[in-house]
Nucleic acid binder design. Sequence first.
DNA 1: ACCAACCCCTGGAAGC
DNA 2: TGCTTCCAGGGGTTGG
Length: 266
Amino acid sequence: MPELPEVETIVRQLRTKVKGKTIVSAEIFDMGVVDPNIKAILPVKILDVLRRGKSIIFYLNDGKFILTHLRMTGHFYYVNILPNEEYRKFMVGKFDFSDGTFLTHNSIRKFGSMRLVDKDRLKQELDKLGVEPLGAGFTLNRFNEILGKKARSNIKTVLLDQSQIAGIGNIYAQEALYFAGINPCRKAGEIQFEEVKKLHLEVVRILTAAVKQKGSTVDNYSNIDGAGNYQKYLVVYNKQFCPKKHPLEKINLGGRGTSFCSVCQR
DNA sequence: ACCAACCCCTGGAAGC
DNA sequence: TGCTTCCAGGGGTTGG
């Protein structure tokens, strides 16, 4: 499932592949995922591709934007032939460029979205998102303020709250909490300042390292050019034992599976 | 105002 | 073996 490092990787690849290209035609196979209004504005040129949180934003030359979210199973493929039946099966949209290449959006669970929005709507949507964890705004003080504001929620749910911090998903939240030695069930307000410091550091360190490795490939995530490498460094997500060989606990927190080590995380 | 629960969807694993 | 049930999860929505 693409989180910040995976989405950042995809955006960088999209920028090298489709920036400056003109979409001349499109086929939409699932209107629940891909906004059919996109067809009405063609041909349109992609001026740039940017990321905000886990969202991908295509900047178009007509002043509009395609606001995209891949959710868990969304993929982009940039190709010049349609590979096979299995590939077509989950294709929700296909965008043809003037040079004969095309971009497809494939999604097994069809939870994602590509919506055509104007400038005001884009701003309105992006304003709902919290601070970028790899941006200059994510200072220790800012993080501490967020935890104070969400004092009664458990710490893991706060890390996943996109309106507070935009980009952390279930994998990296669990990893950061392990490395910071913090039990995911603890209330945000009860975390001591020294621990907040540690967690802040780990969030930034892990996300930065994961971006460098082009994200993690677990289940069916892949970036445009293939798999990421950060899964090699994951220590609790989907694991049975922590690095110190303690058996991990598996609980449900905020509707999400959560693995943690009751020995290493207090 | 805030938080928990539910829902969308499908494949794969687990259970009977 | 083959069916049914359950689980995975981001975020929007609903209900308490």
